[in-house]
């Protein structure tokens, strides 16, 4: 089956219903195949975690109970599911960490966040898991904005965000807030309260990144938006690289840092800190949109 995401043509032996279908081609950019991925890591590679190895142009990941993945040269993913595991579970980690690693290997700066289209450019919301990125994306979606990428945002050498695939991951309570009936939605994995919410296809073209907001929360009662200026801009951006550990010991690290510096010089960067609960999503979106309007 042929698909498209991140501007790439992907040929996959595994069904990827989240992705847009594409015409067959003899020379896909990426192949996803089912096959044996050796247990016990990468011979000659470097172990970066209990289940994580990297080598030159190779990345090995095991998700215990789910699958082993081998990602090579930004062009190929081998996937070795454990016996009896469901396909949904395999796909979550294929489209997450494995695609993240593949995009790194292709030389992109990969950020942990969402990309939302604003006119002919885009805005990124980045932050750690639990910062509220998905909720914010869902809020923007409800206002009619186009979501370019969810969770993983690859940035090319021209500091443009590449569109991912048309879905966001919605927790049940978010879906309820947005009056979306989860009865029709596919669960991301069986037994989770997280749903796959398909979106209308986004623009297939990369869009220049003009704004990046770093999301966080604290115990204060008010929402704050604080611009980050000058040389202080690099570190917070670097801190939101998707799985920065994947870069350790690879030749990609220098390239990544350079791209990160370039992007830092081109964007409006601000920290958006919300109260831990009791905050208004509407207010947060308005505050970000007002900042965008002030800094076009």
């Amino acid at each position: 089956m042929f698909y498209t995401a991140y501007g790439l043509t992907i040929q996959s032996q595994l069904d990827l219903p989240e992705l847009e279908r594409s015409f067959p081609t003899v020379a896909p950019d990426v192949t996803v195949r089912l096959g044996t991925v050796g247990a016990g890591g990468l011979p000659g590679g470097r172990q970066l975690g209990p289940y994580l190895w990297v080598g030159q142009n190779t990345f090995w990941l095991q998700v215990p109970g789910v699958a082993r993945f081998l990602v090579q040269s930004g062009t190929s993913i081998w996937c070795d599911p454990e016996v009896g595991v469901d396909e949904d579970s395999v796909r979550v980690f294929l489209l997450g960490s494995s695609f993240g690693a593949l995009l790194l290997q292709r030389g992109h700066l990969v950020l942990h966040g969402n990309a939302i289209r604003i006119g002919d450019a885009c805005m990124l919301c980045v932050g750690p898991s639990g910062a509220g990125k998905s909720t914010l994306a869902a809020g923007f979606l409800q206002r009619g904005y186009e979501i370019l990428a969810d969770d993983i945002v690859p940035v090319d050498a021209q500091c443009r965000a590449l569109p991912g695939f048309p879905r966001i991951k919605l927790w049940r309570d978010m879906a309820d807030q947005l009056n979306i009936d989860t009865g029709d939605l596919r669960r991301i994995r069986p037994n989770t309260e997280k749903f796959n919410y398909p979106l209308p296809p986004a623009s297939p073209h990369p869009l220049p990144i003009r704004w990046v907001y770093i999301l966080g929360s604290d115990q204060n009662d008010t929402l704050r938006l604080e611009p980050i200026q000058g040389m202080h801009r690099f570190q917070p951006l670097h801190g939101n690289i998707y799985r920065v550990r994947f870069l350790h010991g690879t030749a990609l690290k220098a390239e990544h840092l350079q791209l990160c510096g370039q992007l830092a010089g081109k964007i409006r960067l601000a920290r958006v800190t919300r109260p831990r609960t009791g905050f208004s999503l509407v207010q947060m979106i308005n505050r970000i949109l007002a900042d965008i309007a002030e800094h076009p």
């Binding site: 970066l48 975690g49 209990p50 289940y51 994580l52 990941l61 998700v63 215990p64 109970g65 979550v92 980690f93 997450g96 960490s97 750690p128 898991s129 639990g130 991301i188 994995r189 037994n191 989770t192 997280k194 799985r243 920065v244 550990r245 994947f246």
Partner: peptide
């Protein structure tokens, strides 16, 4: 800390059931 676990594991604990996370914590 979720960030700590995710970083060491290399994949999102957000996609795991509590029992699955529990199994992985000693490894981290």
């Amino acid at each position: 800390s979720r960030c700590w676990l995710d970083e060491v594991l290399g994949f999102d604990t957000a996609e795991l059931a509590p029992e699955e996370i529990e199994q992985l914590r000693p490894d981290v």
